[in-house]
Amino acid sequence: MVRLVVNDLEIEAEDGISVLEACLNNGIYIPNLCFINGMSSPPVSCRMCFVEIEGEARPVSSCAVKATDGMKVRTDTEQVRGLQRTAFQLLMSVHDVDCGRCPANKRCPLQRIAVFLKVPLRPGRLEKHLKNPDVDNVHPLIDYYPNRCMLCGKCIFVCREKHGQPRMTFAKRGFETVISFYGEKDLSGPACKECLACIDICPVRAIVTKDQAVE
């Protein structure tokens, strides 16, 4: 066990876990989207879980830093909140906000983060960019909604964990990046049908079975 101080509160954490996990385990919420408990090398890609740690010049990603004894952490500084709000606005600028028709409504982490950061589900002054077409239905069982997806990569992670080789991938690059099931239509094996782990893990319901696309 290590003991660290978060927002002036002393907490205990298991050896070797990240600052993010330590905080979440102790009921201190830090917005995060791409981290899964127990991940050995997290992607550090959503850029939400910033904290300030004494001795570090700049905010750091709490999922990528191990909790150590005597560490002094702040999760709520102005700079941290500033970065989180900007990251959230950026995500909103590519997110199709249609909560009423979205199966993730009311259990969506984006809604939770909006409430937590006290920001609307809007991109502020930023222009909205939605992908067209808004659904990829090439997979025999699964539909993918790129304008819901925030590319956390959890689906690929669990697919790899379950099957060794993921059956899905990030495809294209940069702003055009999407999740792709390329080639899956030719593989009508039972693996996907029996697993559906990617659907269970998708926090924003960007990946759904064909029959539950809209609620």
């Binding site: 080789q165 993921p166 991938t169 495809a171 390329y182 080639g183 899956e184």
Partner: peptide
């Protein structure tokens, strides 16, 4: 998987 190859090639 074919998707892995596609993912790398499109990058």
């Amino acid at each position: 998987g074919a998707s892995e190859v596609y993912g790398v090639a499109t990058f």
